[in-house]
Design a protein around this nucleic acid. Structure first.
Lengths: 227, 227
DNA sequence: AGTCAAGAACTAGTATGGAAGAATGCAACA
DNA sequence: TGTTGCATTCTTCCATACTAGTTCTTGACT
């Protein structure tokens, strides 16, 4: 397992959740593999309680399966759930892009602009940091939810997104396409100009760029998939 | 606290979650009031562990606040969160109504028809059971998510809905309007006839009927509200 | 050899005790 | 009177022990 240091002030439960989630996305904990509270607790240097609480939370979004008195496993990749995560994200983000046209405040605008500025910096850097761009990309979308005053909605969407992120990781798709940054700029422009129709349309085409051929992955890694 | 029997095969954690949630919605656990693992555990006849796990889950959707080493409280009513729950529900349900026009199968159709049939029965009964109608209403919307093959999305929407349900409870709004059943019938008709635009429009106006004047409630019960 | 039952070895669910941190009250002191 | 410091008493967080249920092994018997 990939292990990182426990952050200051981070509870054991949050540390366990963050680490387990990360390892599931990276496929370090393989789809379908059994995990036990005991093993994870030992690996993380914690007791079963915080680990168990983390597993319960992951079970809520069907990324971990718990069979009482039998064991727990990392869920196999379920194409229906991956599609559902995509669906929910697309629907909510388009609605938020529209809404942001009427709710955007100068403070949120400046945060979004700063984010885009950084994206441009890292895309032009000689040594590109793909994980940095990825993180900025996530941040941009989160900022939009913030600008629309819908942070909890963002959280609920993110809950399901793990299914999509895992598949993205399996496809080794690192997003360093400069077009994505152009998309963000155009989107922000539409929002600043209070053009909801255009914002929605841009978001729709933008999200289309993250498309992944799940069926092809299923043929390549059949053991990782459901059914 | 309102207590019901523990269901067969229900774990202590699920029982605690169900009961605490129910009591928060009914305002039996008042907004802003302190709750402690110990008190709840004693009231429910459980140990602190399952109660704690239930509180953690409720904290994830901001209906319970946990202050480490200080205590936990039922969150005050936050109009922004109530609005957010409404927003998320409206956006997702409209999208699902549209989608169901292309995904509806005969099995789901018959379930929906049976549901509407029961609604008509209970609305015409001499002794109306408001909680039964409410439950059937919830079921109808859940069935739509099922018909669109988006059950997890339904779950995520439901997570936030507790904020709205609590306010509805505070407003004492029992939904026994026959118009709602008519709405469901019209909506189902639009879906059966594969008319996504009409389905979306009907869902939009239908959800409008659940509107509640949160501001008025805030003036009537200022202690229950944030700020 | 094949079958079945008993028990060993796992699992998650629950109970409980203690540790760490935060609030409160009170006493000591300026 | 106002302030500081400490002890008390809360709380959640975590570790650990125990319970109960499942699976797998093992060995006796047919």
């Amino acid at each position: 397992m990939y292990l990182t240091d426990r952050l200051p002030r981070e509870t054991g439960r949050d540390y366990a959740l963050r680490t387990i989630k990360e390892n599931i996305i990276r496929l370090e904990l393989a789809p379908g593999s059994m995990v036990s509270e005991n093993e994870l607790a030992a690996a993380l240097g914690l007791s079963r309680t915080p680990v168990r609480e983390a597993l319960i939370e992951l079970n809520k979004v069907r990324i971990v399966e718990i069979y009482p008195q039998r064991g727990s496993s990392v869920a196999l990749i379920d194409p229906a759930l991956v599609e559902e995560a995509r669906f929910m994200r697309r629907v909510m983000e388009c609605a938020v892009a529209e809404l942001a046209c009427t709710t955007l405040t100068p403070e949120w605008l400046s945060r979004l602009q700063e984010n885009v500025r950084l994206q441009n910096f890292y895309i032009q850097a000689e040594t590109p940091y793909p994980e940095m761009l990825m993180s900025l990309d996530d941040q941009f979308h989160e900022l939009l939810f913030g600008a629309a005053n819908k942070p909890q909605t963002c959280q609920q969407v993110a809950n399901l997104s793990i299914h999509f992120e895992r598949v993205r990781s399996l496809a080794l798709s690192t997003v360093k396409d400069p077009q994505i940054v152009r998309d963000h700029e155009a989107l922000l422009d539409a929002i600043v100009n209070r053009n909801p129709e255009r914002a929605r349309r841009l978001m729709e085409t933008h999200l289309g760029r993250y498309a992944i051929d799940v069926q092809a992955l299923k043929e390549q890694y059949p053991d990782y998939f459901k059914k």
